[in-house]
Simulated assay, not measured.
Amino acid sequence: MSALLQLVDLSWPVRPGMPMFPGDPPVVLTPMGQLAVDGFVSHLASLPLHSGTHVDAPAHVLAGGALLADLPLSRFAGPGVVLDVRGRAGLAVTAADIQPRLDWLRAQAAAFALVCTGDAARWGEPGYYAEGAHLTPEAALLLAGQGLSGVGLDAASADPAGSRRLPAHRALLGAGLVIVENLRGLELLPASGFEFLCLPVLGADGSPVRAAAFVPGDLIRRPDTSS
């Protein structure tokens, strides 16, 4: 009998005070109802759509590109694989890091390739957004050609901080994929054999998501607490 599926949370909580991309306004929750006065509690939320763990639509960087609302819900869920590149040299994930894994990736019939860079361990640090892991244009082009629904990273952006042309975004989104950024917990997932989902809240150029994975319990990796 196969192990029972467990749900692994891969998202950072959206809340006031959370780390934000430099220059973006903070998350603000404004009270709209008070329990003692109105009989209910409610808040108005104000936040950039690309806050925290979020998904990018093609319209994020492409004129006339699809919005999230233009894509079927099935595009945000499917079999996932983890490409663990924590042992690479430097911040960039290069084509040399991706190329040797492509035959294996194609054999998994995956919908999502989740790139485990190790940057999630730096969440909240001053340099997380300013200088973080990212894909080179060549690596993005390799992933864009694999028939995937999307690519996810446990890093702030598919492109390096300060990039104006956003070539990795353009390569992936231009091929019709979605990009999920600021994931966490990818090191807990097996290399394959799980279902990934990143359902958007809004149908615009981007949206916060509650990303998660359904994983057989006996395949979940436990955090290394030896150090």
Score class of each variant (00 low, 15 high):
80 G>M: 05
148 L>N: 01
63 A>I: 08
201 V>H: 10
7 L>R: 15
37 V>D: 14
130 A>S: 09
97 D>G: 07
67 L>P: 00
198 C>S: 13
45 A>G: 10
64 G>S: 10
225 T>C: 10
195 E>K: 03
168 A>Q: 05
207 S>F: 07
22 P>W: 04
26 P>F: 01
89 A>F: 05
166 L>W: 12
4 L>A: 13
58 P>I: 01
109 A>V: 10
179 I>S: 04
47 L>W: 05
202 L>I: 06
123 W>T: 06
216 P>E: 06
133 A>Q: 03
71 L>K: 11
206 G>C: 11
36 A>G: 05
210 R>F: 06
1 M>F: 08
217 G>F: 00
29 L>I: 01
219 L>R: 15
150 G>I: 01
138 E>L: 02
48 P>C: 05
184 R>D: 00
131 E>D: 12
87 G>I: 07
65 G>K: 05
7 L>D: 10
63 A>Y: 04
87 G>S: 05
116 C>Y: 15
114 L>R: 11
115 V>L: 13
161 A>Y: 15
94 T>I: 03
149 S>R: 12
186 L>I: 09
79 P>S: 10
224 D>G: 04
160 P>C: 04
45 A>L: 14
151 V>M: 01
161 A>Q: 06
20 M>Q: 15
190 P>A: 11
160 P>G: 01
4 L>R: 14
131 E>C: 03
112 F>S: 06
222 R>S: 12
66 A>R: 14
163 S>T: 05
116 C>T: 05
46 S>R: 15
97 D>Y: 12
48 P>E: 06
92 A>V: 06
203 G>P: 08
28 V>T: 10
32 M>C: 12
132 G>C: 01
104 W>V: 08
194 F>A: 03
35 L>A: 14
127 G>N: 10
155 A>E: 01
57 A>Q: 09
7 L>Y: 09
182 N>E: 13
21 F>D: 02
44 L>G: 08
165 R>A: 11
93 V>C: 11
32 M>W: 03
204 A>M: 11
28 V>G: 00
162 G>Y: 08
214 F>D: 02
201 V>F: 08
109 A>N: 14
29 L>Y: 13
74 S>E: 15
112 F>W: 09
178 V>I: 13
6 Q>L: 09
200 P>N: 07
50 H>N: 15
202 L>G: 01
30 T>R: 15
108 Q>Y: 08
105 L>V: 11
113 A>K: 09
111 A>R: 15
182 N>L: 07
58 P>G: 08
215 V>P: 00
5 L>W: 05
65 G>W: 04
169 H>T: 04
162 G>W: 06
40 F>T: 14
180 V>Y: 03
36 A>Y: 11
7 L>W: 11
12 W>G: 00
185 G>A: 10
9 D>W: 10
111 A>N: 14
211 A>K: 00
117 T>L: 12
15 R>M: 08
113 A>M: 12
214 F>C: 03
144 A>F: 03
63 A>P: 04
